[in-house]
Computed example of a mutant assay.
Amino acid sequence: MAIAYRHQVDDDTEFALWRIEEGADELYNQLQLDDHEKAFTKQLSASKRYLHWLGTRVLLRKMLKTDEYIDCKVDAHGKPYLVTLPYHISLSHSFDYAAVMISKTSPVGIDIEQIKQKVERIANKFMNQDELAGINERTKIQQLYVAWCAKEAVYKCHGQKEVSFLDNITLKPFSFEGHGIVDVSLAKADMHIDYEVNYLQYDDYMIGYVKG
């Protein structure tokens, strides 16, 4: 399967989606892995998480246009980074899709989620009362997914643990248009950072992405 969707955010930043239709062996054979990665994948074998892990790495390889080994590590906060290549990266996955965002100049964050009604049940765990009051009943489910994806994208872009979606990441009111921009603030202690997060509905998936 080729790249399903690709978007150039600016001159040095882009993201892409890969629809995972291959089996694990087919994806695995497209990668070069070191011994640590091979051992790690054996722990994931035969799980959906294994396909997601493979899918994001295959997509990263396609976007970087290389057949060489890519040394992709995860730091102490869980943020992936490239050891020898000059790119900031962010990885995400949901059901049949893998998503990767890369930038030559700035930290990035991306999140993809399949849209399902169940998000209503957990909305108050990641949105405060003011945010919930701004939700339009007609587009409730889509807006809730925009909110989740936007907060997750900011969390990944910031790249630090101990950040609460409910208490530290706040969205300004927005209307759902299928694609657009949400103003998001990250505030904790003496830190305050404002972000413009883009969102896009792709079939029955929602995507949030941001460049720091």
Rank of each mutant, 00 (worst) to 15 (best):
A99I: 08
H77F: 13
E21I: 05
D35L: 13
I141H: 08
L59R: 09
D204S: 13
G159D: 02
G23T: 10
D190S: 14
C149A: 15
G159F: 00
A98R: 06
E21Y: 01
G180Q: 09
V58I: 07
E120N: 15
I20T: 02
A133F: 00
L64H: 10
Q201R: 15
D71Q: 15
K62F: 07
K38A: 12
K116E: 13
G208H: 10
K48T: 11
A46P: 00
V74I: 15
K211S: 07
F126I: 02
Q32E: 12
S92T: 13
L17I: 06
R61L: 03
I135Q: 04
W148A: 11
D25W: 01
A153I: 04
A133L: 07
V197W: 03
L17Q: 04
Q117E: 15
V58G: 08
Y199N: 10
K140G: 07
I193M: 05
K48C: 05
K211L: 03
S90I: 09
T56A: 11
D167E: 15
T66H: 11
H52V: 03
A24V: 01
Q8A: 14
H192E: 09
Y81W: 14
D204F: 00
K172Y: 08
H192N: 11
S45G: 00
G208W: 09
I135W: 03
I112F: 08
I141E: 07
K211V: 14
G134V: 00
V74H: 12
R49Q: 14
K188M: 02
T66L: 12
E68Y: 12
H7W: 09
Y155W: 07
